[in-house]
């Protein structure tokens, strides 16, 4: 029976047509080329890898035991870190609503205001929080104010983008009904659109706040306030036992803020 099977049915089957496999090969070659180019040009000193594990073990060794006496010192900067995240997020929340209305296709007054709105979105999102920090430290001097503004500058684009998307997807029905009552444009936005995007606005704000706590933990590296300054200083003084205390404190606030954020988002959805 198997011999008749063998003569009657094809013995070759390929998952892909020649064209498809050619495309697949092209992709694999492209990835391989990218890999070789990116790694080879980085000038990697492979010798460092040989004793890295010893170095790491040594580092951990020197961190132990944590010097808990440092904890009272970092309590205030720890609270400051959370303040920076919270106030920065609050500023971003207030600014993001008008910008979202500018940047949403269906609420932009005209092509020009839409372009302005989009430009703010792209500009805000393309620069990292810590780089915004660098800029604001240069302007307002070192301290938490620069940190708050940095957080706000990065978050405003994040919030406005998602809110603008929600505005574009808002239900037309209620908006038309309000327009039909003779309401002004601003009234239509306030009564017809804003309530529809409110859940998105609150949800993303809480979510971004949680990200911002993490971001604020490093703003001190560029002088923009918070716990980061103490981490950086301890590392540069080779005070590894303090470093462990700072790291534990950061771990605590980041995990706590993640839990709080998840809890709030769970309640509003």
């Amino acid at each position: 029976m198997s011999s008749t099977v063998a003569t009657r049915y094809p013995e070759v089957w390929r998952k892909r047509t020649p064209r498809e496999s050619a495309i697949q090969w092209a992709w694999m070659v492209a990835v391989a080329v990218a890999a070789v180019w990116s790694v080879s040009a980085l000038d990697i000193e492979w010798a460092f890898f040989l004793d890295a594990h010893e170095q790491a073990a040594d580092l951990i060794d020197r961190m132990w035991p944590p010097s808990w006496s440092y904890l009272p010192v970092i309590l205030e900067p720890l609270v400051e870190t959370i303040h920076i995240a919270t106030l920065g997020t609050a500023v971003a929340l207030v600014l993001s609503v008008p910008i979202a209305f500018l940047a949403a296709r269906n609420t932009a007054a005209n092509g020009f205001t839409w372009a302005v709105g989009r430009a703010i979105l792209v500009g805000s999102r393309s620069v990292n929080t810590i780089i915004w920090g660098l800029l604001f430290v240069a302007i307002f001097g070192p301290g938490p104010l620069a940190g708050i503004l940095a957080v706000a500058a990065r978050s405003v684009g994040f919030l406005a983008k998602l809110v603008a998307e929600a505005i574009e997807e808002a239900d037309r029905g209620p908006i038309e009904a309000i327009e039909a009552t003779g309401a002004s444009t601003l009234q239509v936005y306030l009564v017809g659109v804003l309530p529809q995007v409110m859940p998105v606005l609150i949800g993303t704000t809480v979510y971004r706040w949680d990200i911002n706590v993490r971001e604020s933990s490093v703003l001190g590296f560029v002088g923009a306030g918070g716990i980061g300054l103490y981490l950086y200083a301890s590392i540069n003084q080779f005070a590894w036992q303090q470093v462990l205390v700072v790291l534990s404190a950061i771990l605590l606030i980041v995990i706590a803020s993640e839990a709080v954020s998840a809890w709030i988002r769970g309640r509003i959805s």
Binding site: R214, S217, V218
Partner: peptide, 19 residues
């Protein structure tokens, strides 16, 4: 939990400055 920049400092300590 830890921001990329924090992780980066440790790798700098282990592997020296650079990419």
């Amino acid at each position: 939990t830890f921001h990329e920049v924090i992780i980066a400092i440790f790798f700098v300590k282990l592997f020296g400055f650079g990419p």
